[in-house]
Write a protein that binds this DNA or RNA. Structure first.
Lengths: 198, 198
DNA sequence: ACGAGGTTACTAAGCGCTTGCTTACGATAC
DNA sequence: GTATCGTAAGCAAGCGCTTAGTAACCTCGT
């Protein structure tokens, strides 16, 4: 019974290995993590990793690819949700921050382990990052052009907004005082101040 | 003639190894850098590293220690430079940003390779980081208490300001469009908006 | 002035261990 | 009885670091 609707045994094991890799890469970094660490965390022998994945680097690529896809979609959806730049920006920053705080373990890997990707994979990921950056930059520029934002240099402001979210992967902890939602609401308000929303 | 006023040959070699380590750690990360990489970049044999330093980790510690010392001093000096919270904050953010942009190679190592430090060294560095965080947090809180800042949650605002500077180590490049000074001036203005300076 | 004796700065060679990954071989389910 | 899913064992390469040695220089008694 190899099904299509449900998840096969192999798919479940594959996913377990990926989750184990996310945790290990986030905690120790890609190069400090061994394939034995990952396999053991998934409850498997070292060799089992290679039954389900081509290489250690492929695990990183799959994690990175998935994370960037999610962020890009999130940003695009938020921007498409309103014609008012201020409303759209509030939603972009809110959702961006919720994602980076809630999934800080994977976003840490996604944002800080790029250098370990093989050149072809890195190029592909860079393209996704560029689209994310451009989407936010264009939103800020559109707000300034429409006269609803007042930012001396919209590109610099956009860079700052990105930093606010991305840096969460470095410092955010779930056992801290701030929930993802709390932080997202406050960060969204700060973002509107940064761009000088009226 | 082993002098006191000038730098001895050994000191110069020691410094060369440190510089080589900063570049290598920043580019590839601590764990992806080999002691052979560092020695070769300093124009020495692999063994020479151990003439001047105890271990690869000690190099990281020295880099980290020096970087954190500089940042702490910079923040303290900026805060002490004015009784007006707005003036002080502008200077703190300005200097903080100039430092992280200008020295983005070393700040990258300083901020993103902490996990590779030995436990005793990590504890010492964490203490320095705590003092930096507290200094900025207290400045924002003082401004709110004095009624010159208007921030819904001063601690969250302080966390955001730190992220703006630290994240530069991840993305800033000297061949980009923005000089450290240009960025610092704009970021300082954004910081004042974030804390709601009147 | 000079060379014996010590010090400094460095290297060639390699040791013991860990790494990513492969190969050859079961066990279990249908 | 044959796919499927997994493992035991181990290989070649590379790692951090050590050991044993050398060349160049400095010191100082004569």
């Amino acid at each position: 019974m190899t099904d299509t609707a449900e998840q096969s045994r192999a798919d479940a094991t594959r996913a377990r290995l990926l989750e184990a890799a996310v945790s290990a890469f986030a905690e120790r970094g890609f190069h400090a993590t061994t394939t034995r660490d990952i396999a053991a965390a998934a409850g498997l022998s070292p060799a089992a990793l290679y039954v389900h994945h081509k290489s250690k680097e492929e695990l990183l690529y799959l994690i990175s690819r998935s994370g960037h896809d999610q962020v890009l979609r999130l940003v695009q959806d938020a921007i498409a949700s309103s014609d008012d730049p201020a409303t759209a920006l509030r939603r972009v920053v809110h959702d961006f921050v919720v994602f980076h705080a809630r999934d800080h373990t994977s976003t840490r890997v996604v944002n800080y382990e790029l250098a370990a990707l093989r050149p072809e994979h890195l190029a592909e990921i860079r393209e996704l990052r560029h689209r994310i950056d451009q989407a936010i930059r264009q939103l800020v520029e559109a707000g300034v052009a429409a006269g609803v934002f007042d930012a001396p240099d919209p590109k610099v402001a956009a860079a700052a907004l990105l930093s606010l979210g991305i840096d969460l992967g470095r410092w955010y902890r779930h056992d801290g005082d701030w929930s993802p939602e709390y932080l997202a609401t406050h960060y969204a308000e700060m973002a509107l101040r940064v761009v000088g929303a009226r």
